[in-house]
C-alpha cells in the first residue's frame, strides 16, 4: 500500500519538477507538448526545454535516487551498521578521484570523465574488498573502506590544491554532485542497468533479513557468507559506480532515506527494499527540483541540497520518535 502511495507521489513530483524551473511551463500544457504536432513558437520552446533538459534530468534524479538508496539499504544490512551507505567501501570517493584526476591531469575533453570516474570507483571498491578479505568478518572491510575513503579524499585535496580556476569549477561538480548533465543517451543505458541490478538486489531480501540476526545466524540459515558478501558488494558497486560517474558524489540520500523508510515500515527487507527504491527516487527528485528553483536562474549543487535539507529533517524525525 505504501509502495503505491509512494509511486503516485513520485509521478506527481516528476510532473511538477518537469514543469517548474527557470522557464515555467504550465502543467496543463504537458500532454499537448509531448503529443501534439501543431505547436506555437512558444510551445515549441517549452517542448525543447521539457524534452531536452527537464525530463532527462528528472529521469536521472529518479534513477540515481533509487539506485543510491536501495544500495544504501543493502549496505546497512550487510554491515549491520546504521551508518553504512553506498560510498562506505570507496565507490563514491574512488569515482570522484578518477574524475578529478582526469580533470587536473588534463584529459582531452569531458568524454574521458565518465570512464575515469567509473574505473576509479570500481578500482577503489576492488581494493577495499581485497584488503577486507585478509581477516574474517566485516570489520576489516569496513576499516579498509574508511582508510581508502580518507586516502582518496586527501589525493582529491591535493589535486584541488594544484588545480587552476577553470578546473576548480569542474571539481566542485564531482565533490557536490549535479544532475545538470543528464542526456537521453546516458539514460538509455543507466535506466535499464540500474533497474535490472536493483531487481537482482531486491531478490536478496531473505539473505539481508538473515544478516540482521547476525552473520553466524545467517550461515545457520543456509547462506554461504563469503559468496553472499561478494554478490552484494558486486551488485552495489555495479549500481553505484555508473551513477557516480554520471552525477558525481551525491551524499546523504543513500544514508538517510533507508532509515526514514525503516522507521515507518520496519526492517523486513521484503518490503523495505522496494519502498526505499521509490522513496530514494522521490527524495532526489525533490532535492534536484529545489536545487533548480531556489536561486533561479542559477542553481545549487544537489549534494548541498540533500545534506542541507536531509540532515535537519533526519534529526527532526529522530527527536520526534523519542518524544
Amino acid at each position: 500500500m505504501l509502495l503505491l502511495a509512494l509511486l503516485a507521489c513520485l509521478l506527481l513530483l516528476a510532473l511538477i519538477a518537469a514543469a517548474h524551473g527557470a522557464v515555467a511551463i504550465p502543467l496543463h500544457a504537458l500532454p499537448r507538448l509531448l503529443l501534439a504536432h501543431d505547436l506555437t513558437e512558444q510551445e515549441q520552446l517549452w517542448r525543447n526545454v521539457l524534452v531536452q533538459i527537464r525530463l532527462p534530468r528528472v529521469a536521472l534524479a529518479i534513477v540515481a535516487g533509487g539506485g543510491l538508496t536501495v544500495t544504501g539499504t543493502a549496505m546497512q544490512a550487510l554491515f549491520r551498521n546504521p551508518l553504512a551507505e553506498p560510498g562506505l567501501i570507496g565507490i563514491a570517493s574512488g569515482g570522484a578521484l578518477g574524475a578529478v584526476a582526469a580533470i587536473v591531469l588534463g584529459a582531452p575533453g569531458l568524454f574521458w570523465l565518465t570512464p575515469a570516474a567509473f574505473i576509479g570507483s570500481l578500482a577503489a571498491t576492488a581494493l577495499c574488498y581485497q584488503l577486507g578479505q585478509r581477516r574474517p568478518g566485516m570489520s576489516s572491510l569496513l576499516l579498509a573502506g574508511v582508510a581508502i575513503n580518507v586516502i582518496c579524499g586527501s589525493i582529491i585535496g591535493l589535486f584541488t590544491y594544484v588545480a587552476d580556476d577553470a578546473q576548480l569549477r569542474s571539481l566542485t561538480f564531482w565533490n557536490m554532485g549535479s544532475l545538470a548533465g543528464a542526456t537521453w543517451t546516458q539514460l538509455a543505458f543507466l535506466g535499464p542497468w540500474t533497474l535490472a541490478l536493483s531487481l537482482l538486489l531486491l531478490r536478496e531480501w531473505r539473505a539481508l533479513n538473515a544478516l540482521l540476526l547476525g552473520e553466524r545466524e545467517a550461515q545457520h540459515l543456509g547462506f554461504a557468507l563469503n559468496p553472499l558478501r561478494r554478490r552484494l558488494i558486486v551488485l552495489v558497486a555495479l549500481i553505484v559506480g555508473p551513477l557516480v560517474a554520471a552525477t558525481g558524489v551525491i551524499g546523504f540520500v543513500g544514508l538517510v532515506v533507508p532509515h526514514l523508510v525503516r522507521l515507518s515500515l520496519g526492517a523486513d527487507h521484503r518490503w523495505l527494499l522496494p519502498n526505499t527504491l521509490v522513496a530514494g527516487a522521490i527524495a532526489l527528485s525533490l532535492a534536484d527540483w529545489l536545487a533548480r528553483v531556489v536561486v533561479i536562474p542559477a542553481e545549487l549543487p544537489i549534494g548541498i541540497v540533500t545534506s542541507l535539507i536531509g540532515g535537519p529533517f533526519f534529526l527532526w524525525i529522530l527527536t520526534r520518535r523519542v518524544a
Binding site: 538473515a210 540476526l213 543456509g222 525503516r262 526492517a267 523486513d268
Partner: peptide
C-alpha cells in the same frame, strides 16, 4: 542473540523457514 534493525517478532521467527 542480537538484531541490527527492528524486525517484527513474527518475521524473526519466520526466518527459520528461509
Amino acid at each position: 542473540p542480537s538484531l541490527a534493525f527492528e524486525l517484527p517478532v513474527r518475521a524473526v521467527v519466520g526466518t527459520g523457514a528461509y
